[in-house]
Design a binder for these strands. Structure first.
Lengths: 234, 234
DNA sequence: CCTGCCCAAATCGCATGCAGTTGCGCGCCA
DNA sequence: TGGCGCGCAACTGCATGCGATTTGGGCAGG
């Protein structure tokens, strides 16, 4: 499925485009509403429209890209309410991750996770995009440790969506605390009972969501679309 | 995506194919391993390979279809372990559904849900496929009542995957009890506290999973792939 | 009778071409 | 100056064509 297909490495042009756009979105290089015409996309990745088009379809299925008939594809613009839903789902899924993982981490796994957190620490004063990407990588890596392909897939997808929501709706930045929370998470997953670990993950994600989403001045100009949305539903 | 693109009705050939195959899989008309060549697919839906191919991509992203490079697409063959993961995730997601819904159901909504259960009752002696489809429809309708598009999307997807798992790994049938459980669910969602409703949903889904999955003689010939899988991973 | 090789048919991967739709800019009119 | 409508360029929707790859079945050899 997607996970196995995204595993680019051979001549997988399709996966390359998907991954490229995903990363661009995650790092906030692409912002909601940005246009993604098939032609120019294919050109910049050195392939024909066909593949670019296919990739856009995939990304639309993941919720990162919006596809309207006969219109240029755009980067999705999650509403605050979307963001709320995404984080609710994310909490539910990542609780499962830590529940399955609690007490099973091997030393190399712990080391790998700590290495990611260290990278986060190193990047904490760099561009915003890198921080978000690394934090996301931490959560995805955690999911991958479960070796449950379907869970991995959903966590990955929801993490990307969350990243998009953060970069478009969130405050400029607030990753400082997340780093400590990640370290604490590793510890509690390694040693703690699964309930406690699950609870801590839930609190961590809630903290991320409220630090970034609820506190700040979420709404900019383009938010009028989310305001008008209820009126346009019928 | 599904939600916004499912706005079918006009000339949406793409959505038609997706929905057609989804339904065929859900009703067990298509079984895991069945081949889905682009040509014949497009022919039977009256479109060119291009669209059929695109639809297969979408279904692969949803996990219903397996796509291997240069090979004919096949209906996915979930392993028992996949099925376990799917139901774990499904429990987590549907708990959210009933938590959001508890105590908010309007009378027409209750009536609509009861109508679906009634249809289940009517179809309880018909072909297996119809029962599974209606039970699935119940859960999806429940999710739709939350009006949370992203949650709806994930629940829908996971329900389809669960349906595929049931029809391929499950016993011939055991929907009798599910009908009563659905009725009980409606009641507790309508009146009960959200915790209780959430708990009942979890128990219902666990019951479905264990009735169908754990009890029976899950493994047939093709399961040797899942047996060999761990050895082939590196 | 079983095994292994080789070739033709089936099928996929991808680019390109054409037709239909959108929307943007420019000129016209108030 | 500001609003309106028209026409063209850009873009998408989709089909088809060609080369590459897999498959499975026949034939030769053990």
């Amino acid at each position: 499925m997607t996970a196995s297909k995204a595993r680019s490495g051979d001549g997988d042009r399709f996966g390359k485009i998907c991954q490229g756009i995903r990363r661009a979105i995650l790092e906030a290089a692409l912002m909601p509403g940005d246009r993604l015409p098939e032609d120019s996309l294919g050109e910049s990745f050195g392939v024909s429209r066909t593949i670019a088009r296919h990739a856009l379809g995939q990304l639309a299925a993941e919720g990162l890209v919006e596809l309207r008939r006969n219109r240029i594809a755009t980067v999705s613009a999650p509403t605050p309410s979307d963001a709320r839903d995404i984080f609710d789902i994310r909490v539910a899924l990542e609780r499962q991750v830590v529940q399955h993982l609690a007490g099973t981490l091997t030393d190399p796994q712990v080391a790998e996770l700590k290495a990611i957190v260290e990278a986060e620490h190193a990047a904490r004063h760099g561009p915003d995009g890198a921080s978000i990407r690394l934090a996301t990588e931490f959560h995805i890596r955690l999911a991958e440790l479960t070796r449950k392909p379907i869970l991995i897939r959903y966590v990955t997808e929801i993490c990307y969506r969350a990243g998009l929501s953060l970069s478009s709706l969130g405050r400029p930045h607030s990753s400082e605390c997340a780093i400590n929370e990640h370290l604490a998470l590793i510890e509690v997953i390694r040693t703690g009972p699964s309930d406690k670990a699950s609870q801590m993950m839930a609190e961590h994600l809630e903290a991320v969501a409220s630090r970034a989403l609820l506190g700040g001045e979420g709404r900019q100009a383009r938010d009028l679309v989310s305001i008008l949305q209820p009126y346009a539903e019928d």
